[in-house]
Amino acid sequence: MATSSIEKLATWRARGTRVSEQIVQQGVMMLENGGLRKMGDEAWSFLEQLALASMDIGRLELADECIELLSEQFPGSPRVECLKGIRIEAENKPKEALEFYENALLEDEANPALWKRQIAVLRSQGSSFILRTVNELTKYVDTFYTDIEGWLELADIYAELNIYDLSLQTLAHVLLLASQNPFHVLRFAETAYTVGDVPLALKTFLRVIDMDDSAGQEGNATKRAWWGVKLAAARLLSFPNSPSESQTSLPSAEYLRLLNELAREQLTGTYFPTSVGGKVHGRDAFVAWLGK
């Protein structure tokens, strides 16, 4: 029993699964049975996990216990400092938390964990802090260029502020860093569509479909991308001469027509698989709604 919960906790920790209820339940059991000694060096990362999980579900007294144990073992560790900061956040005292992080960053200005927490608190403060958030976050990604989370967050903020141009540029960096993730590409495509760069959006939607090499079973990103292709192709077909500032070359009208047709087939196939057979209720309405 004890070893299996150790293993379970370790897997959750490694994957970053957010199952705080279960973590606390298992963790309390471990603490009561003296499992800390059995874990050896793993005990400290377990305590960190338990502290975070118990703050997540509001059992602050348990979190305090964990943090105390940890700070006894590692006095002055930035990781424990970070936990203490989150503990302040958990009490819903953003002002104090900000102050705490700022002081901690004075000690060690380049600690990414503390810096990210600070930005997260700023972001949670809403629109009055938005300028400061963006400033800090730009500085952060400028320093830690490879942090994809930071870039995604920045793209999100820009999108929230309706500055889709900047959001698109930020997502370009995300694509450079993680070009293998179809969801990032999809997001890039959708943002491009929102900006109004339809040819670019069409190309990028197609790229998402191109990335999916699973035969038969389409990923969720691919399904959504087919919708994007349909939208973009239909729009380009119906307004072929609309002025566009896009730098992306347009596929020929013939290809556009084929793409439009293909997208319609794919979408119909997704929602009304042919294997069902016979007349399916709603299929005609769907096809009619998709249009040509």
């Binding site: 069409l202 197609l206 790229r207 084929l258 047709e261």
Partner: peptide, 16 residues
């Protein structure tokens, strides 16, 4: 990477 992607997709699904 998306330069000729429309051709690739159309070929993949047998349109051209």
């Amino acid at each position: 990477s998306a330069k000729n992607v429309e051709l690739r997709i159309l070929r993949k699904f047998g349109k051209i």
